[in-house]
Computed example of a mutant assay.
Amino acid sequence: MAEFAPGQTALVIHVPEAESVVGAWRRRFDSSAAHGVPAHVTVLYPFLDADRVDAGVVAALGELFAARAAFDARFPACGRFPDVIYLTPDPDAPFRELTEAVAARWPEAPPYGGQFEVILPHLTVADGVPPDIQDMIEAELSGRLPVVTRVRAVALETFDGALWKETASFPLGCPEV
């Protein structure tokens, strides 16, 4: 289970359409859900500490995301990391491109603190669970997928010491005509 520090921020894409499918599992097995984060795909975590997110950063984020078009995504299947089961987005390239754009603009905030070389967009269903629990979750989810969503915005979430709260939302630019 992840430990969060007050003042941490994250950029995430909320996927409300997934709540009815994965919400019960997330409440049991996802530490971010226990701290108020809805079903989501992380764009960048950790982002800048809250005391560094000033009006200039907010404006730059707004411009960066406005320059990218809204897009449709499906979550047709489960994937796994050690001790983690997640939904895989299709396509995953638009999510990865958002992460790469933010990381390029703020190189001092690499995705996941630079722990992983490859950016693998995902919607976490459960973390810290053994393979038998992952098998059970995947079997239950298999008949309920795909989840389909329209990605229209990126949220800035800030941890206040107890809960993650949305502190800003940045619309993606106009969809393709």
Score class of each variant (00 low, 15 high):
residue 170 F to C: 07
residue 17 E to D: 07
residue 174 C to F: 07
residue 133 I to N: 00
residue 140 E to A: 08
residue 115 Q to K: 13
residue 9 T to A: 11
residue 162 A to F: 11
residue 94 P to H: 06
residue 9 T to P: 13
residue 70 A to L: 15
residue 81 F to H: 05
residue 156 L to D: 08
residue 149 T to S: 12
residue 130 P to W: 03
residue 105 R to F: 06
residue 119 I to H: 03
residue 7 G to H: 09
residue 153 A to P: 00
residue 144 R to I: 05
residue 112 Y to C: 08
residue 99 T to F: 12
residue 38 P to I: 04
residue 72 D to M: 07
residue 4 F to D: 14
residue 44 L to T: 06
residue 18 A to Q: 09
residue 13 I to L: 08
residue 31 S to M: 00
residue 160 D to W: 00
residue 114 G to K: 04
residue 42 T to K: 10
residue 25 W to A: 09
residue 152 R to L: 15
residue 137 I to N: 03
residue 87 L to A: 09
residue 98 L to T: 13
residue 141 L to V: 07
residue 26 R to P: 06
residue 119 I to P: 04
residue 57 V to F: 01
residue 117 E to F: 01
residue 105 R to V: 04
residue 17 E to L: 02
residue 5 A to K: 15
residue 158 T to H: 01
residue 123 L to S: 08
residue 13 I to V: 15
residue 10 A to Y: 06
residue 124 T to K: 03
residue 27 R to I: 05
residue 11 L to V: 09
residue 112 Y to T: 08
residue 20 S to A: 14
residue 155 A to G: 07
residue 147 V to K: 06
residue 163 L to H: 13
residue 177 V to M: 09
residue 21 V to F: 10
residue 93 A to S: 10
residue 35 H to L: 08
residue 23 G to Q: 11
residue 9 T to S: 14
residue 42 T to L: 07
residue 42 T to H: 10
residue 91 P to D: 02
residue 44 L to S: 04
residue 25 W to P: 06
residue 143 G to H: 02
residue 50 A to C: 06
residue 135 D to Y: 01
residue 74 R to D: 01
residue 123 L to H: 08
residue 167 T to S: 12
residue 169 S to K: 05
residue 109 A to R: 14
residue 45 Y to L: 09
residue 159 F to S: 04
residue 56 G to F: 04
residue 92 D to Q: 10
residue 169 S to N: 01
residue 150 R to S: 15
residue 3 E to S: 14
residue 99 T to M: 11
residue 129 V to L: 09
residue 5 A to I: 14
residue 142 S to W: 01
residue 8 Q to F: 03
residue 175 P to K: 15
residue 150 R to K: 15
residue 70 A to N: 14
residue 57 V to E: 00
residue 111 P to Q: 11
residue 33 A to W: 13
residue 29 F to V: 02
residue 166 E to Y: 03
residue 118 V to K: 01
residue 27 R to G: 09
residue 21 V to W: 07
residue 99 T to C: 14
residue 52 R to S: 09
residue 111 P to M: 10
residue 120 L to F: 01
residue 106 W to T: 05
residue 101 A to P: 13
residue 10 A to T: 12
residue 83 D to T: 11
residue 125 V to Q: 00
residue 99 T to P: 12
residue 3 E to N: 12
residue 16 P to F: 10
residue 29 F to K: 00
residue 159 F to V: 10
residue 27 R to E: 14
residue 104 A to G: 14
residue 139 A to C: 12
residue 4 F to S: 12
residue 12 V to E: 07
residue 83 D to N: 10
residue 106 W to R: 02
residue 147 V to T: 08
residue 16 P to N: 08
residue 52 R to A: 11
residue 104 A to D: 15
residue 151 V to W: 00
residue 4 F to Y: 15
residue 133 I to T: 13
residue 115 Q to W: 07
residue 99 T to R: 03
residue 138 E to A: 14
residue 67 A to Y: 09
residue 69 A to L: 06
residue 175 P to N: 15
residue 33 A to V: 05
residue 103 A to H: 03
residue 7 G to M: 10
residue 108 E to I: 05
residue 118 V to Q: 03
residue 123 L to Y: 06
residue 147 V to H: 06
residue 109 A to F: 11
residue 143 G to N: 03
residue 139 A to Q: 15
residue 119 I to S: 02
residue 101 A to Y: 13
residue 175 P to G: 14
residue 2 A to L: 05
residue 160 D to E: 00
residue 14 H to T: 13
residue 80 R to T: 09
residue 89 P to Y: 02
residue 19 E to P: 14
residue 36 G to S: 07
residue 162 A to W: 08
